[in-house]
Amino acid sequence: MARYSMLIDLTRCIGCDACTLACKQENGTPLDVFFARVLNVEVGEYPNVKRVYIPVLCNHCEDAPCLKSCPNKAIVRRPDGIVILDQDRCRGTGACVSACPYGNIYLTRVDDRWYLNSDEPYERDFVKKRLEPQRARKCTYCAHRVDEGLDPACVVACPTTARIFGDLDDPDSVISTYIDEQREQTGRKPFKLLPQAGTKPAGMYLGVMADQASSTLGEDAPVPLPQGVRTP
């Protein structure tokens, strides 16, 4: 059985929010609901300031607290590791929202709105049909696409291939080879968010390479080996 995971390379992320938009379009999420958001972080103080972009989405935890907290059993972990929230079973209790340490479950309590008043087929047949207040929502790793053999929308949209999606159990998958390559070439090992929460997330991150900045400025620094997502 597959074990799906998403690896996000922070070195490659340029904070363009294409993933955020692609996700919104794919999932038709209402106003203010963002399954795939990007945190804009300023680190340090002038004159030594750095900006780090941290794309955040549901981590599809192995020991998902949202799932365990749901009193209606509306959240299910599929055998392939994708954690799905079933809106038909959700009663809007709101326990999962607090249980998630990453703030990646959305529950609109009062109203659900769409941005525009237009009545195009996309709005009429897709988005507005899915406006359901008092139902929790979360990222599904685009399970509907994954089941068809496609990558999640945010992965496809990423212009710098900072997001790498695949099956960790398959040693030849894109994500497994990328992890191996990066370990060899740049010595980076994937890390997970909030390990102290004990949720065993499936989502992983690769750190920022500080060397890159100095080499871009032409200083006498070791040039990192080229990184390719797919090497022959």
């Binding site: 680190v43 941290i54 998630c100 703030g103 750190g207 500080a210």
Partner: peptide
Amino acid sequence: PSPGRHHKSLAIVDSVMESLGPDYEDKKVV
């Protein structure tokens, strides 16, 4: 829409900064 998203994001940022190593640890984060 996800109550607590902001301060949970701050927790995520702290966690990432810890993982990013000495260049990022114990810096002011906004």
